[in-house]
């Protein structure tokens, strides 16, 4: 989509503002999410080759003081079991050279099985689950592995598009070994028919990059008779490698 096209703004859930719904050029004919124009800088980012001692070459560190092992199981901490299909989501966090990102913080947040967030601004008329908050944390291990136990979130309406629904997704936040590797993104589930109709998934314009946001069913991660396993590996990089393919 050309940046000069006029944009119809809305306000809503994950988008907090969307381009209009009319004929789009995403894979499902939906217009990809471009965000809120009034928040987009007009100037291109200033390229900075970092000094060897630049602050951004290093990153905050996290450890046992920050995260309890219980924080990785979102089904715990309430009086009972949450409703929904229990899942185990795991994978490796790697840098662009394939090296494990060790001991770094992974944060997860999500809607409940009915597609509702615990948040004052979420007005979706789906029930809250008294046994589910939808926030978790863990640290990657020496192999760069992370692992969460949770429930599969429900789809929810994308109120800024007529008759549109967001596919099931998990929000992820990650740190690397350099501050420049910071990443916030969303994980999707394989085979979800809503994907090609989703303005946020399709906002990643490169098809192979988009596929990298979709987990794979992995029976090796199942907990037998308890949870379904999904594998999703994450590759951190500087902010520029994905700049072009995101269509910014």
């Amino acid at each position: 989509m050309a940046a000069s096209e006029p944009l119809v703004q809305g306000t809503g859930r994950d988008g907090a503002g969307f381009a209009g719904v009319t004929a789009g050029d995403g894979p499902g004919g939906v217009r990809p999410y471009v965000g809120r124009v009034e928040r987009h800088p007009l100037q291109p980012p200033v390229p900075l080759v970092l000094d060897p001692d630049a602050v951004e070459r290093r990153a905050p560190v996290f450890g046992a003081a920050d995260v309890s092992p219980l924080d990785a199981d979102l089904t715990l901490g309430h009086r009972g079991e949450p409703l929904g299909e229990r899942i185990t989501v795991g994978g490796r966090v790697l840098d662009g050279r394939g090296r494990p990102v060790r001991g770094q913080l992974v944060e997860l947040w999500q809607a409940n099985a009915a597609g509702r967030y615990v948040h004052r601004a979420d007005r979706h008329a789906a029930p809250l689950d008294p046994n589910f908050t939808g926030a978790g944390r863990c640290l990657t291990d020496d192999d760069g592995r992370y692992r969460f136990t949770t429930i599969r979130p429900g789809a929810y309406p994308d109120v800024t598009h007529h008759n549109a629904w967001r596919p099931s997704h998990l929000h992820f936040s990650l740190f690397g070994t350099a501050f420049t590797q910071r990443l916030v993104t969303q994980m999707y589930f394989p085979g979800d028919p809503l994907l090609p109709h989703d303005s946020i998934w399709t906002s990643v314009r490169d098809a192979s990059a988009r596929r990298r946001l979709v987990a794979a069913y992995d029976p090796g991660l199942n907990e037998p008779e308890r949870s379904l396993g999904y594998r999703w590996d994450i590759v951190l990089d500087g902010p520029d490698a994905t700049w072009a393919e995101e269509g910014r």
Binding site: A16, L94, A209, L236, E246
Partner: peptide, 8 residues
């Protein structure tokens, strides 16, 4: 390895 893309 290609990087995982960012999302809002």
């Amino acid at each position: 390895l290609p990087a995982t893309p960012s999302q809002t």
